[in-house]
Design a protein around this nucleic acid. Sequence first.
DNA 1: ATAAGTCGGGAAAGCGCATTCCCACCGCTC
DNA 2: GAGCGGTGGGAATGCGCTTTCCCGACTTAT
Lengths: 359, 359
Amino acid sequence: MAASTLTEVARLAGVSPATASRVLNGSARTPGPDIAERVRNAAESLGYIPNAQAQGLAKSSSGLLGLIVHDIADPYFSAIARGVQDAAREQGKMVLLATTGGTPADERVAVAAFAARRADSIVIAGSRSTRPADQDGNAELAAELDRYCRNGGRVGVVGHPVVGASASEGYHVVAVPNEELAAELARQLAANHAQEFVIVAGPEGLLTSDDRVRGFQKGLAAAGKPPAEVMHSGFDRAGGYEAGQLLAARIKADQASGAASSRPCIFAVNDVMAIGAAAALRSEGLRIPRDASVAGFDDIETLRDFRPALSTVRLPLEEIGRLAALGTAGNSAADVSAGAVTGQVTLRRSTETPPQVAA
Amino acid sequence: MAASTLTEVARLAGVSPATASRVLNGSARTPGPDIAERVRNAAESLGYIPNAQAQGLAKSSSGLLGLIVHDIADPYFSAIARGVQDAAREQGKMVLLATTGGTPADERVAVAAFAARRADSIVIAGSRSTRPADQDGNAELAAELDRYCRNGGRVGVVGHPVVGASASEGYHVVAVPNEELAAELARQLAANHAQEFVIVAGPEGLLTSDDRVRGFQKGLAAAGKPPAEVMHSGFDRAGGYEAGQLLAARIKADQASGAASSRPCIFAVNDVMAIGAAAALRSEGLRIPRDASVAGFDDIETLRDFRPALSTVRLPLEEIGRLAALGTAGNSAADVSAGAVTGQVTLRRSTETPPQVAA
DNA sequence: ATAAGTCGGGAAAGCGCATTCCCACCGCTC
DNA sequence: GAGCGGTGGGAATGCGCTTTCCCGACTTAT
């Protein structure tokens, strides 16, 4: 028993399909009240559900919004996803989800799939990469997106424009002031930390990571500090843990030798990495903030109960998702500027300097 | 400039649309190699992307899988979503996401929307509710789902069957042994805890919460303990926090009066609530496990670095999502049994009994 | 009262594709 | 060499809906 069709409803109501269509969906023309009533009753009794595919085909617009994330289980992305979902609901759209693991090649595939489904717009979250290995992938992704835009699609990007994308019509990027905020974080940390700074970064070439590293170094410089050492690792908890282990060994060695520069201030470029690093230190018997300061970035909600409370930079993730989705709605140039987002350096216990340990 | 169509490709290749269709999508009939080559080249040069809507219309199957969750930003759901997404990808489907906040009425709307999009299958995650207020919503949801199934849709549910759904064809529920696991947790905790037990539960009528409460009480009984007091609250961190505040006040009063039953063992029916409760205790100056034991349920990944490490029941969330999605794939009755899932009681520091505090 | 102007409804033409049916042509057998 | 099944390609139909166009009936102005 297949779902009933508009035609069936029309027949039961004794009207033409055209009329039925007009009353069941908002058309410019509104049939008479009595007819409308009849049609609505017929639809009701048949349990009529319009076929969105057919509707989409007919008016070439699908009511779909494609969302591309690296990993939906990552709290960073799921927070953004919530914002996107919210905005989509407001626009009466449904969201199509694609997770790609962050490789441009997979992202290209996802874009193509969205294009095939005639998604009205696409939101891409997740860091862009400039790694040489991703170069071809980036080019193809950019080409795919450009084509999508040329065909009338609108795309919203979180963070950086897609590498190599020509700034064609329909592009909207929600700028995240990673660099500025990282600099500000560095400045505030520098005020209380005499010891060396270490940056636990993601893979080189990951734009978000690179920006935060650069900003942090600038902030350090502005505060008259020497640049921090940068350790590259995975952009996730495991990466942070790995770096943390290295650091733990070093700290313990320093402590054993009574060297001056123990108790480093560690800046991990995102909260999840920071947690990983902290876990590594702890598993080596070190304590935070006694033996090291740790700061992250993002202010992931689920991690706010972490102890010691993590110093970080609050980013309005959900809002960012909203803006990215909203930016693809209608309008145009004007809202590009409105797409700016602000964060907030948030110092907590993990970077407190114990008075008794002061230099 | 609209996207190019199959017809255009066919014309450029000098063949009929039928032939073009046959080569570009796997048809039973395969055109000659030379022709296929021509068509493929034409498609390539035109940047042809098949219109999935039209394809869906023509073969009435959309390649869509609808996923319904309460809140995608909740780590519990995002973990499940990852599993679903994975399974969907394997099946060559895309996932449509809907978040409903858990109200049956909204879920009904989501199901209808999925039905309109002719999603091949629907996965519903998130606890069912039997609250009186949701009765009507449940009935409507069940009706909507039944209709969807009758029209050939397949639905996978994690946890409990939808309240009131007739077990029609195409239903698949992934059973989660909440009760058994909660009982086991209670047994294990009872072995080390002489003091009173308190259950921080979700709203009454939330099946998942109710099951875990019931199981825990049974486990307690099996261990010869009196039943635990049950506090109802929100099923989220805020709910846990709220209950935690009440408990903190009580514990402090007990401690002040030197009463015997201080240091309760608190079982929160999910990890997020447990974290909330723990945060509340801590904000009142109480320490875990010194002043109280706390256990949760789910073993949320992001929370594993929480200190003190949270005793909980590990649930293979991602696997659950996979199974739910896979269950809607093809096959039928046989895999219903295969849909069983096992969890693992995991005791950690948060429920350790300090020797020196022993009764 | 008649002409011009609405308004409400229906017929029909797509939207882009899959697929059934049909036909021309091939090599084959007897 | 004529009849045969088989094969590869095209014409046409339909999926369910929107939308333009058209037409009859009604209203209003002269």
